[in-house]
Amino acid sequence: MVQALNHEELGQVEVAPEVLGVIASIAASEVEGVVDMHGTFYNALAEKFGRVNYTKGVKIDMINDAIVVDVYVTVAYGKAIPLVAEAVQENVQSTIYTMTNLDIREVNIHVVDIQIVKHA
């Protein structure tokens, strides 16, 4: 658990890493140029059976009391990968901070695929 707030008189608020993963996944998906989040084999198998994984494509690590987020994305063909990656980093960091008041040390973007987007 990650401690978000500490009010001596009221108690503590803790945020589970899975919650940070959901926030990061949704924030990354909102960025123009991100076509899909890249999950694991387990994620793909679970989706075949109708289970939705809201943390798909995100890995949260606690390293020396610092939060490190790894995001695995598929980018649309023709989009500038550095610009999309930077936008994902900024949106993930700012969204997590806005919702939890937690500082993120790193947001690492892993572009695992390019997809040609067909327009109808």
Rank of each mutant, 00 (worst) to 15 (best):
V2M: 11
V2Q: 09
V2N: 07
V2E: 09
Q3V: 14
Q3Y: 13
A4F: 03
A4Q: 08
N6K: 13
N6Y: 10
E8M: 05
L10W: 09
L10F: 14
L10Y: 09
Q12D: 15
Q12V: 13
E14M: 12
V15K: 01
A16R: 12
A16H: 14
P17A: 05
E18T: 14
V19L: 03
V19T: 11
L20M: 06
L20V: 09
L20K: 05
G21A: 05
I23P: 00
A24R: 00
A24M: 01
A24H: 04
S25C: 05
A28T: 11
S29W: 05
E30C: 11
E30D: 15
E30Q: 14
E32A: 07
E32Y: 10
E32F: 01
G33H: 04
G33F: 11
G33A: 03
G33P: 06
V34T: 06
V35T: 07
D36L: 06
D36M: 02
D36I: 01
M37S: 02
M37D: 00
H38N: 10
G39P: 09
T40I: 08
T40Q: 07
F41T: 07
Y42W: 11
A44I: 05
A44N: 11
L45G: 06
A46R: 07
A46S: 09
E47S: 12
F49K: 05
F49A: 12
G50T: 04
G50F: 05
R51L: 12
R51E: 12
V52W: 04
N53Y: 01
Y54W: 14
K56Y: 04
G57D: 04
G57H: 01
V58D: 04
V58G: 00
V58I: 15
K59W: 01
I60R: 01
I60Y: 01
M62L: 11
M62R: 13
A66R: 14
V69L: 07
V69T: 07
V71E: 02
V71G: 11
Y72K: 09
T74E: 13
T74V: 15
A76W: 00
G78R: 03
A80F: 05
A80G: 08
A80M: 09
L83Q: 12
L83S: 13
V84D: 07
V84T: 07
A85R: 00
E86K: 15
A87Y: 01
A87K: 09
Q89M: 11
E90I: 12
N91H: 05
V92P: 04
V92Y: 02
T95L: 10
I96P: 00
I96T: 00
I96D: 00
Y97T: 11
Y97N: 14
M99Q: 06
M99L: 14
T100Y: 13
D103W: 07
I104L: 13
I104A: 04
E106N: 10
E106M: 07
V107P: 10
V107K: 02
N108G: 13
N108I: 12
I109T: 05
H110T: 05
V112E: 14
D113H: 14
D113Q: 11
I114N: 07
I116P: 05
V117K: 08
V117Q: 08
V117I: 07
H119K: 12
H119N: 15
